[in-house]
């Protein structure tokens, strides 16, 4: 008789329910330092994470969600729990965005992750209007360091809040999309969506 045979396994439904109750109590007790969920979108499954201050991370599947959560545990707090309801507002606004019914996000953001110039860059990303693009050089100017073109590329690649802070609108000076943390195809999908909706408006 092994220990596993001595007692039956517990069913997954019970554990799911208990997990949900734990997340709700943790939030009520101020212990939910990082809440996360995933959402399915036209650019694949996105990981959304927030702190009590606001949305702290959006990550593409190609960025490896487990690795992103491990990084958040290390950089923000190990008190990380899946808590979908804490991100209902973010999920809803993303739904509206991908449906072409939203052109700007109205969400509390927690920008504790990017430092220095990278922070300046991501803060200025919303200056590029929906349906428009800017070159890496123009973005460097907006962020106050016109010659830091390469650093803008790095800042965009490390943008902790892609889609919401629109680094996909930063393109090469010849107009080609250039690289993207979510992959070139995801960048094209976002730019196409915004062009289509922008023209229709």
């Amino acid at each position: 008789m092994t220990d596993d045979d001595l007692f039956p396994s517990v069913d997954a439904d019970t554990l799911t329910r208990l997990h949900g109750e734990l997340a709700a109590r943790a939030a009520a007790d101020g212990l939910l330092d990082v809440a996360y969920r995933t959402v399915e979108t036209p650019v694949g499954r996105l990981l959304l994470a927030r702190t009590p201050a606001g949305l702290v991370r959006v990550a593409f599947a190609v960025q490896d969600h487990d690795a992103v959560l491990a990084a958040l545990a290390s950089a923000v707090s190990p008190r990380v729990l899946e808590a979908p309801r804490q991100l209902d507002d973010v999920a809803r606004q993303l739904d509206e965005y991908f449906a072409g019914r939203r052109t700007t996000f109205d969400l509390p953001l927690d920008l504790q992750l990017p430092r220095g110039f990278r922070r300046d860059v991501v803060l200025h990303l919303p200056d590029i209007a929906y349906g428009h693009t800017a070159s890496y050089a123009e973005m460097a100017g907006l962020a106050g360091s016109p010659r830091a073109v390469r650093a803008v590329g790095t800042a965009c690649a490390l943008n902790p809040l892609p889609v919401v802070l629109p680094c996909h609108r930063v393109v090469r000076s010849d107009g080609s999309p250039g690289q993207y943390a979510g992959g070139a195809a995801a960048k094209l999908t976002l730019l196409d969506l915004e062009t289509r909706v922008g023209v229709a408006a």
């Binding site: 958040l72 545990a73 290390s74």
Partner: peptide
């Protein structure tokens, strides 16, 4: 330290 959610998924059944 790994995210706490991982602790719950790995050990939740045992603790129950």
């Amino acid at each position: 330290k790994e995210p706490f959610d991982r602790v719950v998924s790995v050990h939740g059944a045992t603790v129950l």
